[in-house]
Nucleic acid binder design. Structure first.
Lengths: 100, 100
DNA sequence: CTTGTAATTAGATATTTCTCTAAATATCAT
DNA sequence: ATGATATTTAGAGAAATATCTAATTACAAG
């Protein structure tokens, strides 16, 4: 899993809201769009980011595209958060890109 | 807790690395600075964001300022993540600021 | 194969974010 | 008080992000 893409994806309130919508079940892009006051183009941009982070999956159905939550990533994300705070883990820091 | 500030804070790799350093125990700003290749001013900026999200606490000790992890927020953050993915919670969406 | 609907991509712009240097504040030691 | 050290604040520039409109792709149905 790519930590950065996941945390970046979660950093936007619209994207978090999309995820919450999807908890209730799969939705087409159009259905999701009705829930937001921004253009479909903008939504599509957010979908792309969620997809890149592997937080959602897509499936084409006729002329619609159905988005669904990738629940299998949930545990991983939770583990990431625990890792940030927990005192037990001894994870090395391969993440920052800094040359320490 | 302010969701947005927390997720925004976690979205930056340097800040996540700071949190990991602090897992091992409290550190002064200067000690933390040695671990990063950016200026102290930039670090201070990140400290401010972590503090605003209530993820770290500060205490002045002489001319040093000691940063420590606010572990009590950990569970809350984990709960937030679970909320995003879990199917049980029925949280209303007071978050986006959108007028749905 | 043309027309209509769904969704994405391209290009542009405004805002936010990260970083820097320089200046300011706070504390300690002499 | 003066000088030295630790940290933050101010201001500016570069890069990333969210949003829009317009154009494009993909599919379905006559």
């Amino acid at each position: 899993m790519k930590q950065q893409s996941v945390f970046k994806a979660l950093a936007d309130p619209t994207r978090r809201s999309i995820l919450r919508q999807l908890r209730r079940g799969s939705r087409t892009a159009g259905e999701l769009a009705e829930a937001f006051p921004i253009t479909r183009a903008s939504l599509s941009h957010h979908f792309g980011i969620l997809k890149a982070a592997d937080l959602v999956r897509t499936e084409r159905r006729g002329q619609h595209i159905v988005y669904s939550l990738n629940a299998s990533v949930m545990e991983e994300v939770a583990a990431l958060v625990m890792d940030l705070f927990g005192s037990d883990g001894d994870r090395t820091d391969e993440e920052t890109g800094h040359n320490r």
